[in-house]
């Protein structure tokens, strides 16, 4: 499904600020995998996602998605197969456009000069109804008037309405209040399962990482230091993860934010 082979990326090479953000990193995701990624700040988790999404090209290595080598494919062409959702709810939707217009932009697969038809409206209304956030009654409301949770739920729908092969979730519930975070996480899990989307999720919440992931990947200094398969190892607990990180890296994985599950 997704094969990442030994990718590296150094930002600002040849300067004193040179930073090796990804260091000879390899990762394989099978069809239907839900891989959660944990690691301290600056471990290269978001950089990994941006490399997969195509915000920049890697210095070396290959990225293969569904038997297609996408290492040097432009990001807007990759976006047809990869959905990407960020921490900031403001970054996933266009505030000056209405809910239906945002959805149509993401999920209306017709010609450049086509407009939203009655059929499209009914289809998107149904999709919005499935979110269970009453957004289907406000389809012509500008997105700027929605709450963070509503915007993120809409963003999730936009990222998945075309059934992408891969979904990248970059701490997408971290900026929401606990209630909305719970709701958006539930939605995510349901949408991913229903559409059978392979999913990579960065989270600081270790409980969530264990609960939702069928594989848990730990990153540090641009490398994957451990991959835990839930099928093989049943008794994974937060304490186990912290302990195994400490023995591997000789330092603490945890900061307060992670312990509190924020």
């Amino acid at each position: 499904m997704l094969k990442i082979e030994r990718i590296s990326k150094t930002f600002d090479p040849n300067s004193i600020n040179a930073k090796k953000a990804l260091d000879d990193l390899s990762l394989n995701a099978q069809d239907g995998d839900f891989i959660t990624i944990i690691g301290a700040n600056g471990a290269g988790k978001s950089t990994l996602f941006n490399a997969i999404g195509g915000s920049f090209f890697v210095d070396s290595g290959r990225i293969v998605l569904d038997d297609q080598d996408i290492t040097y494919v432009k990001s807007n062409l990759r976006a047809k197969k990869i959905g990407h959702l960020f921490q900031d709810p403001l970054s996933s939707t266009a505030p000056d456009m209405s809910i239906i217009e945002n959805l149509a932009l993401a999920g209306m697969n017709k010609g450049l000069f086509s407009r939203i038809s009655t059929n499209d409206r009914t289809y998107f209304q149904q999709k919005l109804k499935e979110l269970g956030m009453d957004l289907e009654q406000r389809m012509d409301t500008p997105v700027r008037l929605l709450s963070g949770g509503q915007r993120q739920a809409l963003g999730l729908l936009m990222a998945t309405v075309n059934k992408p092969q891969l979904l990248l979730l970059d701490e997408h519930t971290a900026a929401l209040d606990p209630g909305s975070a719970e709701k958006v996480m539930e939605l995510t899990s349901r949408v991913v399962e229903e559409n059978h989307i392979t999913c990579l999720m960065i989270t600081h919440d270790m409980k969530k990482a264990i609960e939702y992931g069928n594989k848990i990947v730990m990153m540090d200094q641009g490398k994957i230091i451990q991959t835990i398969d839930k099928n093989r190892q049943k008794d994974i607990t937060v304490e186990n993860l912290i302990r195994s990180f400490r023995t591997n890296q000789g330092k603490d994985l945890v900061n307060d934010r992670m312990l509190l599950g924020l």
Partner: peptide, 29 residues
């Protein structure tokens, strides 16, 4: 009024409304 409601028009408006979103979408800003 016609143009801004077509798929192309929506993509143009999204480019003006949220560059960050468009950067990670299939729209070529």
């Amino acid at each position: 009024n016609w143009f801004l409601k077509t798929k192309l028009g929506l993509a143009i408006r999204a480019t003006g409304s949220n560059r960050i979103m468009v950067a990670s979408s299939s729209v070529d800003a």
